[in-house]
């Protein structure tokens, strides 16, 4: 996983609520056994017309947003399916930070696991940032994770909250399996205690 420290980038405004993970990456593209290569299908139904050509009205088909690394939407971004293909598709497109008033829980988790920073901010602040973003290439936003601020094009700083543990993992680009395995002794002790207290818990063994 790539580290996330300071990101200065073009932000794309997508002023919609309840953008579901089917919309971010439709199920027919989930047949891959890899994590990479999904960017071309990100937002497929919004990005392409039925004949396969680009829809010029869609923000990510417009300059400078083709190179957007920040995406700003309204409430409940990433609702629906748990598919991690959604953040994989965003990441493969180039998105490293998503900003919205709220995120669906699983999508929020999945972003952190892939080096994408989800930032929750009040709806009116998201609207302001979308206005900034609409000014195009000359109005990049800077996201400083260590300081937990977004720096607007006029220099104004917008503070945001982030879970301390997740912040640390993002800043260092760490895989959390390795971290959990440092607690392996505690896991083993837990298993032993449980096997004694609840010996009836069955093991799944097929004949």
């Amino acid at each position: 996983m790539d580290k996330f420290t300071v990101l200065t980038a073009v932000a794309a405004p997508l002023p919609e609520e309840n953008i579901d993970t089917d919309k971010i990456i439709p199920a027919r593209f989930l047949k891959t056994t890899k994590r990479s290569g999904l960017g071309v299908h990100a937002f497929d139904s919004m990005r392409y017309r039925p004949d396969g050509t680009e829809n010029p009205d869609f923000v990510l088909n417009q300059e400078p947003y083709r190179k957007a690394e920040i995406l700003i939407t309204y409430d409940n971004l990433g609702c629906g399916s748990s598919r991690e293909h959604a953040p994989w598709a965003l990441l493969d497109f180039g998105i490293r930070c998503v900003i919205a008033p709220s995120f669906a829980d699983i999508f929020n988790n999945n972003c952190f696991k892939n080096g994408i920073l989800p930032i929750a901010l009040p709806r009116e602040v998201c609207t302001q940032l979308m206005d900034d973003a609409r000014q195009g290439a000359n109005s990049r936003l800077t996201v400083d994770l260590a300081r937990q601020v977004i720096i607007r094009p006029d220099g104004q700083e917008v503070p945001f909250d982030v879970d301390p543990l997740r912040k640390q993992l993002l800043l260092e680009g760490l895989d959390d399996i390795g971290q959990t395995l440092q607690h392996e002794k505690a896991i083993t002790t837990f298993e032993q205690r449980r096997a004694q207290a609840q010996p009836w818990i069955p093991h799944i063994v097929l004949d």
Binding site: E84, I106, N109, K113
Partner: peptide
Amino acid sequence: AFGIGTSEVEHVMATQTILQK
């Protein structure tokens, strides 16, 4: 019972646990 992403699937496979608040 809850749904998880693929990174968490790998985490459960390796540790039989999940990190959650």
